[in-house]
Design a binder for these strands. Structure first.
Lengths: 191, 191
DNA sequence: CACACCTTGTACCGATCGGTACAAGCGGCA
DNA sequence: TGCCGCTTGTACCGATCGGTACAAGGTGTG
């Protein structure tokens, strides 16, 4: 089944884009990591590299929508949703060992190519988190401001963790964020 | 004078690396932006693209050391130094319209090539800011934590501003940062 | 004016880029 | 067994990659 082969390849493709950026991800790398020859790659993704990137962005968008944004919007207990966001984020980014593909695309020229998707990814995150904060009792303006700060902080934490070669920097950032998003709850004495 | 031609080219080269990343910056782009043919480029930078990137990183390191890190460490009034850091940062990153080259390198494979320089850039910033905070009355641990948070936040603000196509997001982040680094000072009613 | 030297444009190198064409190989099905 | 169609490896395309070689052009000095 083509659908299966395609979807099976996406995580591998995502890692290559994540580590090398859009331009740096060559078909040779993509094929090797996915375990597919050029023929199979182009059979699964007739649109070539651009379609691979689109598919990867689709998958990421879906993952975040399902696991993070939707709970933030709909979970009856907003604090639980925020806690979940923090722990899912920590897992997803492998505690700082993994970069954010969307963030990496945003910084380099990949931005022009995928500007809409990139903007949507971050805007959706901000809006979903702001809604959760609103439901948790924050005023409209404070909720929006705090949400933007949180999403921005996560990106900054990833940059810094990678730059310093110190994934723990990401964990420290998440701990600070927890204290700010859910004040009054005792933070775990960090690992 | 070779020295002058070399140094005159560096800002142009920096912009290309900034917008395209290390791999995405081709010699054609670099030469065109710098207004130099291939011959001149290799005359000024015999080591090729790698030496150009090194020279650009050198220049950035020097700029930040002079304009930001040194004042943070030595300026008698630490609050003035912090205020200066914020305004210099805002200017340097063109109020969010300009990405951070070092951050962009950190996210993609450029990291492996320049890992040491990248780590030093961020570590020096964190340490200098922590020292200023310490001199402003913060306890050792809080100063270090707050400094890391600030440097991380600046990177996050740049990513978000570029991702959303909304440079103002960077300004909002700087305003939040000012309130946290220099509590009690009235913030400008944002522009 | 002539010489020497620094600078630069240009042609060229092998490698690799993203992408295409296509034929051999392989499965299911009768 | 023979057939058919999906899948895939491989050869190949023009373009561009980073880098080198070198000769023409410009400049300062005598």
């Amino acid at each position: 089944m083509a659908q299966t082969a395609r979807e099976a390849a996406i995580p591998a493709l995502a890692e290559v884009f994540r580590e090398h950026g859009y331009e740096g991800a060559s078909l040779a790398l993509l094929g090797a990591r996915a375990g597919l020859g050029k023929g199979s790659l182009y059979h699964a993704f007739p649109g070539g590299k651009a379609e691979m990137a689109q598919a990867v962005l689709d998958a990421i968008e879906t993952w975040f929508e399902t696991r993070i944004y939707a709970p933030l919007r709909d979970e009856p207990d907003p604090r639980a949703a925020i806690r979940r966001m923090l722990s899912e984020t920590e897992t997803y980014f492998r505690s700082g060992g993994r970069a954010c593909l969307v963030g990496a695309f945003a910084l380099t020229e990949g931005r022009d190519r995928f500007a809409e998707r990139i903007a949507r990814y971050f805007a959706a995150w901000c809006e979903a988190l702001a809604r959760a904060l609103r439901r948790d009792g924050w005023a409209e303006a404070e909720a929006a401001d705090l949400a933007e700060e949180a999403v921005s902080a996560i990106q900054g934490g990833l940059v810094l963790a990678r730059a310093l070669g110190d994934p723990a920097a990401f964990g420290r950032m998440l701990a600070r964020l927890r204290a700010r998003l859910i004040p009054g709850e005792a933070a775990e004495p960090g690992g």
